[in-house]
Design a protein around this nucleic acid. Sequence first.
DNA 1: CGCAGTTTTGACGAAGTTCAAGCACAGTGG
DNA 2: CCACTGTGCTTGAACTTCGTCAAAACTGCG
Lengths: 212, 212
Amino acid sequence: MYAQASAKIELPSYVQSPAPVSEGPTTPVTFFSSGAEIYAQGEKAGALYQVEFGAVRIYRLLADGRRQISAFHMAGETFGFEADATHHFFAEAINATGVRVFRTPSGTDMSRQLLPLALKGLTRAQEHLLVLGRQNAIERVAAFLVEMSERQGGLRQVELPMSRNDIGDYLGLTIETVSRVFTRLKEKGVIRLLNLRSIEILKRDTLLAMGE
Amino acid sequence: MYAQASAKIELPSYVQSPAPVSEGPTTPVTFFSSGAEIYAQGEKAGALYQVEFGAVRIYRLLADGRRQISAFHMAGETFGFEADATHHFFAEAINATGVRVFRTPSGTDMSRQLLPLALKGLTRAQEHLLVLGRQNAIERVAAFLVEMSERQGGLRQVELPMSRNDIGDYLGLTIETVSRVFTRLKEKGVIRLLNLRSIEILKRDTLLAMGE
DNA sequence: CGCAGTTTTGACGAAGTTCAAGCACAGTGG
DNA sequence: CCACTGTGCTTGAACTTCGTCAAAACTGCG
């Protein structure tokens, strides 16, 4: 069930109780409203962030404003680790979002916990490179919908917490192209739009084949 | 100086003595000839590979043969670590290449050594996402040349160990487009081709501005 | 109910791909 | 030593896909 209106904060059905990154006294949850910056490129890094509910976009900008979203993070996922002491990307809340911030005491060795997360992120980024480098618009959107579906437990109904603009900037497409592809997929009977932010997958196999 | 013909194996000028990943008795160097497979997607992972000389391409394929190279690895660099027990990519020698293979004894915790490598790789992959998602052909090639130059110590002369085909598959372009962009950069006096595999950067600032 | 922002749709143009041909260079053998 | 051949690179012309610009339609919210 999709949480409707009982609370001020949107709680999509795919929210799970994530395993905390570290033990000990529970870190309080920090709230970010839609569009709020969590950290900026160039800022000093050091903390770890775990999404409690909501969604986060990680992105970079070119001087003229072009934006590339390199990842979305949903409930349960951890982000914010960097190769050096500086953030190389921006992190923003897409919607009202709750995040647990873990300030790791300097001198603590977190590599055992961090390595699997970093490797998971690396694999995802490399797979996304294939999408951006070698797939066309339909294939990209299909791959995206499959990815979102799988990250939400493989359900027919998929919630898209982000705007068409975000999807475009994630897939290296314009919002118009994203919109046109959605229309084409609807016409082909592959998906159905329940509302702007949630779709239903009608032909999973076709979608999978398109996204490779 | 570029090693000419004294040995059978090409030893580009930018070969450095890499720091070994692990201590102890020196692991022997395994040789791969041009195009030889180091590992394949789907194979069991577990070893670490450090390039001694030569160059390696990491890539993925789509069912119809489209290829995306996600990374090149040059002398001194380590690759081969994965998020799970399986390789998700192919690794091939671009030229005659020497690789030290470290079979990590099961039960050994390498996370302290691996984490910085994984994070470095993650940052590079994410930066490459920006190139593939949001930059046009000239910007991609410019960014590539700058990257190669910096990885070789920022010299004016840059050796390209890979073919135009490899460059295309790394930048998400066809070989024809890569070639045309090289021609344009020559016409603008930004670069000069010494031979097919080595270029000289004449206007570094212009190239940097183009690649952002 | 009406407004603002987002999404969709349409017409057009530019960038890059495809297909095809020609060129350059290294290696081979006469 | 030079022609021959193969491979990789460059160039050209036609075509396709996606981006741009503009306008209309829709959604959600006050």
